[in-house]
Amino acid sequence: MFGLLVAQNIAFYVIAALIVFGALRVVTCKNLVHAALWLVLVLAGVAGQYILLAAEFVAVTQVLVYLGAIVVLFLFGIMLTRAKTGHDLELDNPTPAKVGAGVIGVLLLGVMGYALWDAWRGQELGDIVVQRTAEVSDSLFSTYLLPFEVISVLLLAALIGAIVLARRD
């Protein structure tokens, strides 16, 4: 068990370093498509972390939804609108926007870090148990039914909003 934990820790830090590096490249990279590709690395790394935590279903869903659908749609949008062949896609924000984004990023990190630290203070997690998909779906459709449905309404609203914005009749 101990040997497994050491290996798990090493893998965690390697993947975490990759994720952080990728995330930095997403915001510093000036080519839009390259930024999206670095985002793929970040999201794939997150999926890897889920696997390390024995949450296979969440990991596969992460790959299906984020890598397989969302970033593909990003790339799709970029290709349809901006990717004129032969032009480099340069984009950059003015300095005030960069400073603002940096401040917001640090604030978010602080708040979320504190929330996590506060919630799990002094708690020890037991052995990692593989979470079965049936358990995930059971709790999703009983305990968390209302949030689940609310989120789907939110997505519907976003969908309608996108259609309204895109259609200029």
Partner: peptide, 10 residues
């Protein structure tokens, strides 16, 4: 894997 066929879709 327990998620078998989802892996294929992914």
């Amino acid at each position: 894997p327990p998620v078998g066929i989802l892996f294929a879709l992914a």
